[in-house]
Design a protein around this nucleic acid. Structure first.
Lengths: 150, 150
DNA sequence: GTAGTCTCTCTAGTCACTAGAGGTTCAAGG
DNA sequence: CCTTGAACCTCTAGTGACTAGAGAGACTAC
């Protein structure tokens, strides 16, 4: 089992530059190299990259993943911190949902208040954004846009 | 009414460097300057910054906000694009909520499957992340972490 | 006049990649 | 054995929306 970086990418669904990026960030160890200096991976790296991919899909930061990997490499330690990290992530996700729901309500009100066939001077969307008083509730300091995988 | 950048920041809740950043991005016009080259703002800028702040709170990108401002400056145009932008944002928010809910379910299952008092080798959190087969549903390509205001 | 706060510009850092330049290596076909 | 073309290498820079800090100048209250 000697995989090139492209093989590894194909098997895990992680793009080639991203694998190199993970290596530079210390999430993957520097692998063996071929005679011509190309990376060669084995089963261990395949599994580790799968772990990282899975954790990223669940929204864990690379920092949190590094901590989880550290723990994985020391099976004798207590798993308290893994649980704490997962619960922290769960809390963060729930908080995001809460904020996005408030946003959704306000945006729906604003977007549906405008038929789109008038002039900009009478636009309810623009008026709502210009005047916070028009809002049904206080949604200041709500969620901001997020980065997402395609 | 001649506000310094600090006064403007205090009145709108937008931080001073962020105001300068908005100016550099073209969302705010370059204001008048004092004899000593310091920015001086009036009511128009206060309102515009309030508009931007409000739209950012609702998750609009700076690009979308620029388009909305452009429309605001031309009250004779049709407000079709404002409605489209708002509805696009609403759709994006709804999609994020949908993804985050799938994530929440999976994270809750993982986090609550572990008491946190065992050793890392038996940790359900780590096992779940290592093996996608353990997942209750397919949540690959879900939401990634988002940027949010404090 | 002076102390202390505010403001100026500029650069660099954040996160998690992504894109591109310019060059080298590998594997398959002839 | 040789060629071709895909895959690989390193390095730098760009994304969005800021945030932090340096070093210098301006303003305000006493």
């Amino acid at each position: 089992m000697f995989l090139s970086i492209g093989d590894l990418a194909a098997r895990t669904g992680v793009k080639v530059p991203t694998i190199r990026y993970y290596e530079s960030r210390g999430l993957l160890e520097a692998p063996l190299r071929s005679a011509g200096n190309q990376r060669r991976y084995g089963r261990a790296e395949l599994e580790r990259l799968g772990f990282i991919r899975h954790a990223r899909d669940l929204g864990f930061s690379l920092e949190a993943i590094a901590a989880l990997i550290e723990l994985q490499d020391h099976p004798d330690r207590a798993c308290t911190s893994a649980t704490r990290i997962a619960q922290g992530q769960l809390g963060a996700v729930r908080e995001k949902i809460r904020r996005l729901r408030a946003l959704e309500a306000e945006l729906a009100r604003i977007a549906e208040g405008c038929t789109g066939d008038g002039a900009a001077r009478d636009c309810y969307v623009l008026a709502s954004l210009a005047d916070h008083e028009l809002c049904a509730r206080d949604h200041s300091i709500e969620a901001r846009s997020s980065t997402q995988r395609s």
